[in-house]
Design a protein around this nucleic acid. Sequence first.
DNA 1: GGGCCGCTTTGACTTGTATCAAGCGTGACG
DNA 2: CGTCACGCTTGATACAAGTCAAAGCGGCCC
Lengths: 247, 247
Amino acid sequence: MDTAVPISTGDKLCAPECLPESCRNCSVRHLAICAALNTTEMVELSGIASFQELQNHDPITSEGEVADSVFNVTAGAVELYKLLPDGRRQVTGFLFPGDFLGIAMNERYSYSSEAVGNTRLCRFPRKKLEAMLDRMPQLERRLLSMASNELIQAQDQMLLLGRKTAKEKLCSFLLNLSKRAASRGEDPSVVHVPMSRSDIGDYLGLTTETVSRNFTQLKTKGVIRLLEGGMVHLPDLERVRELAEEA
Amino acid sequence: MDTAVPISTGDKLCAPECLPESCRNCSVRHLAICAALNTTEMVELSGIASFQELQNHDPITSEGEVADSVFNVTAGAVELYKLLPDGRRQVTGFLFPGDFLGIAMNERYSYSSEAVGNTRLCRFPRKKLEAMLDRMPQLERRLLSMASNELIQAQDQMLLLGRKTAKEKLCSFLLNLSKRAASRGEDPSVVHVPMSRSDIGDYLGLTTETVSRNFTQLKTKGVIRLLEGGMVHLPDLERVRELAEEA
DNA sequence: GGGCCGCTTTGACTTGTATCAAGCGTGACG
DNA sequence: CGTCACGCTTGATACAAGTCAAAGCGGCCC
């Protein structure tokens, strides 16, 4: 699975041309941690990055394992999850292009994670990235702000898990995917849902069957339309928002 | 409610004596954000702090309100919560002495919060604290590490809310209180539970009645003993851990 | 001391979601 | 081109937790 390949090694003082191709073409530069950096710093960062291409279900991290890498998702999707001793599973989050994997950790990963469909990652050795933090306070500031946002999202998810009904959960989930698509500049009324029903269930604290039944009901009521290739059409976002019980 | 009182105004170059009394006597200095600072910095920090004394249910922050203060809990307890439009409530966390309130926020508070019982807070104007961050990178580092730990806890709470049974939830909750008591140097087998059954229910995604019934069952099985003044005795922590399904 | 108020406990009943169990489609592969 | 496997859907039934209701239990104030 580890098809890691070094990206080049820029160490000059630097114009945009110094950046490796994979960074210059990167479609999520303005979203990822890279957004906090100037070109010189980007070159330094790219020097410690390696690139990784994954397929559905390829593992990325394993709960309890020593955390020596952090990642940026550049294409595809990733799911984070935790397991109980008897196998019950909770998906704690999905990551999409531009999202960062590795803020929440001590010496060891606190969750497992794997690719959802074909996925590309940018991998950074954690020690080296941390060393860079000392010299780039704005990078640290950015990580703090990302952590803060993740915490806010986590609180929303607790509200969902603890207090929402199955239908509200599903609508919140679709709405969330829609918002994130919008923030990546995509059409918010057509969302890509690359994960399986059981992944969704494990994310929402439901079973596969309940997820499926509620999809059917939403379809019947005309709230959603299932398209080809895991795309879902949301013709009336306001309606979805109401069903999700969001302010 | 706002009985804020300035703490003094040290601005010298400084020995421990420069610290205001309330800081010198503070029992949570080694836990709070203050732990990252030397005396000089502490004096500066204490210069922007004010001190607040609250009673049960006194509000601290309100979801959606402009976030101009952050807080350190120095005594008592605080609960954070979010509401759905129809009044359903999810408690997203409890804070105890040494805990920090205000990592997870943008321009506005993302949750409401109130005192649980008699509580004391150290309040910092957010803008001033942020200004200090520029000059004290180790403070920023500390906040990042606190945020990271909160995220890990949030993920554990998602696992609890999404996948655990009522009894497992309650045992996990008690175990968590026990761990936190231990980290403050208290006896882990006697935990203080200052919050009501319905607060606990709103934290665990259960109703008051279910919490109460499960307390009774645990009592009957001898796993817990209810003492005076909201204290709970856990004679066999290993047993609680098993019932909580924790590794 | 009596009565009121808020919180907790207990009981009887309901219900949303889980569980168990088939079917259905589609894509992979011999 | 069959059949095998896997993910999705649908149906029948079970059960954990929710709801509704009422009875304890202090604490507090008049």
